[in-house]
């Protein structure tokens, strides 16, 4: 068990380094001189040279990477070109908005989808199964940003219950803040219900055909307990892995939802950075999200033996 944890922890280090290298290389592929891009066409030759020296651009590329990596290690992701603020605090600030929406949505979706998927699997091919699978496939096929627009159209424009544009942080006014995040959370929850329900159903069907389920029934275990105690832990294991992927995917694609609902989140920071050619911000956001994703998967793997004790013993 301890071996498994140590092994998994150590495996994360090279992955994180390679991810950092990939981000570094990617941004170096940008055509043109970074100093020129940062300072604009009006910059003089001296200021350019000064900035190059400051950024370490006159060093060989490997040295530049190490230099950058060193800075990243102490939490220095550089300063934004647009507003000269340090990038890391900017990212943390925006990350809170994105993370709260994504995490709440995934938790809610899991709470609905896992029981629904298990129920559908338990009565495979019944009318209920057909409806649940049909509904899930429907939800799976709706683009999140369109569902968001429809929600805004209905609850914001037609009914006028919720605000259409804007954001208030929870620190300022909890009630009003809630009004701004209800729709984005509802949108993401509905979309993810589709994915998770299908996964939970498929996994439960796999598990329910196994002999240990029949063994449990042959001991006189009631159906509810068969599902809850015998099928759930085994069927939840693959779903648990999926949750890590979903969390990462949502974080990676959160920009579209933030655009629909005009939320000041991490995704919007990245996209605005791309438009403004604010490369320190773009670099910082890419690195941050990728590392978060690696960490989420690490956490998922570390908790996996709870559902499947075989893994830690391998």
């Amino acid at each position: 068990m301890l071996r498994y944890i140590l092994h998994r922890l150590l495996m994360t280090v090279p992955t994180a380094l390679l991810v950092a290298l990939a981000v570094f290389v990617l941004l170096r592929l940008v055509p043109g001189d970074p100093a020129q891009l940062m300072l604009g066409d009006t910059a003089t030759e001296e200021t350019l040279a000064e900035l190059r020296a400051q950024l370490g651009l006159d060093q060989p590329i490997a040295m530049q990477f190490l230099y950058w990596l060193g800075n990243v290690a102490v939490g220095d992701l550089g300063r934004s070109i647009t507003n000269d603020l340090p990038v890391l605090p900017l990212i943390f600030d925006r990350f809170q908005v994105s993370a709260s929406i994504v995490i709440v949505a995934v938790v809610l979706a899991t709470l609905v989808a896992v029981p629904a998927g298990m129920l559908a699997a338990w009565r495979q091919n019944s009318l209920g199964d057909l409806l649940i699978v049909g509904g899930a496939t429907m939800l799976l096929s709706i683009p999140s940003f369109w569902l968001g627009l429809l929600m805004l159209l209905f609850f914001g424009v037609k009914l006028g219950w919720l605000p259409v544009v804007g954001y208030v942080s929870f620190g300022e006014d909890f009630g009003r803040a809630l009004a701004y995040v209800i729709l984005p959370i509802a949108t993401l929850t509905l979309i993810e219900i589709g994915v998770i329900t299908r996964m939970a159903r498929a996994a439960t069907i796999e598990v329910l055909r196994l002999e240990y389920i029949t063994h449990a029934r042959a001991k006189g275990v009631p159906e509810g307990r068969v599902l809850w105690r015998h099928a759930l832990p085994n069927a939840f294991a693959p779903t648990w892995t999926l949750l890590g992927l979903i969390l990462g995917n949502l974080l990676g694609g959160i920009a579209v939802i933030e655009t629909v609902f005009t939320l000041p989140g991490l995704g919007r920071l990245l996209v605005d950075g791309i438009f403004a050619r604010d490369y320190p911000v773009v670099q910082g956001c890419l690195l941050f999200v990728a590392i978060m994703y690696v960490l989420v998967n690490l956490l998922v793997d570390l908790l996996y033996p709870v559902f499947d004790p075989r893994v830690a013993a391998e």
Partner: peptide
């Protein structure tokens, strides 16, 4: 099931719950 009639299965690898 259980106290009246019990059952033993063929595949020992899959008839006990791994979790």
């Amino acid at each position: 099931r259980g106290p009246g009639i019990g059952m033993v299965f063929q595949e020992p690898m899959v008839s006990l719950n791994p979790a």
